[in-house]
Amino acid sequence: MAADVDTALSGAGCGAPAQDAALPASVDLEKETVLTGTVVNGEGEFVQGAYVRLLDGSGEFTAEVVTGEGGQFRFFAAPGRWTLRALSRFGDATGELDAVQGLNETKLAVSR
C-alpha cells in the first residue's frame, strides 16, 4: 500500500512497509543494495504471511518483514554476505546471499 511506503520514507515508523508494494520511485538502485525475493511452500505456491528475517555476516538479526501477496519480501541493506531465514505455518527455510549494490533476488522454499 502506497500509504505505508510513504510512512517508511518519511521515517515516521520503524515497522516494515507492505512487502507487495512496488519499489518506491525515490529508491535509487545506484546507491541502495536491495535484497528481494519470494517465499514458496513445498508445492511451489507463494506463501503470504511468512516471517522473513535478515541476519548479518555474524548471524546477528538485522531486520524482519512479513511477506505480502505473492510471497514477496524486500530489504534495504549493504553489499556483503547475508543470511535469510523464513518462518511460516508451512515450515522454515534458510538461505545465504552475497549481495551487491543494486537488486539481489532469491527464493526461499519452506518445509517442515
Binding site: A8, L9, G11, C14, A16, P17, P24, S26, V27, E32, L54, T62, A63, E64, V65, R74, F75, F76, A77, A78
Partner: peptide
Amino acid sequence: RLLAPAHLPQE
C-alpha cells in the same frame, strides 16, 4: 553504517 533498519530505505 546504516541510518534505519534494513527493511526501510536508508535516506
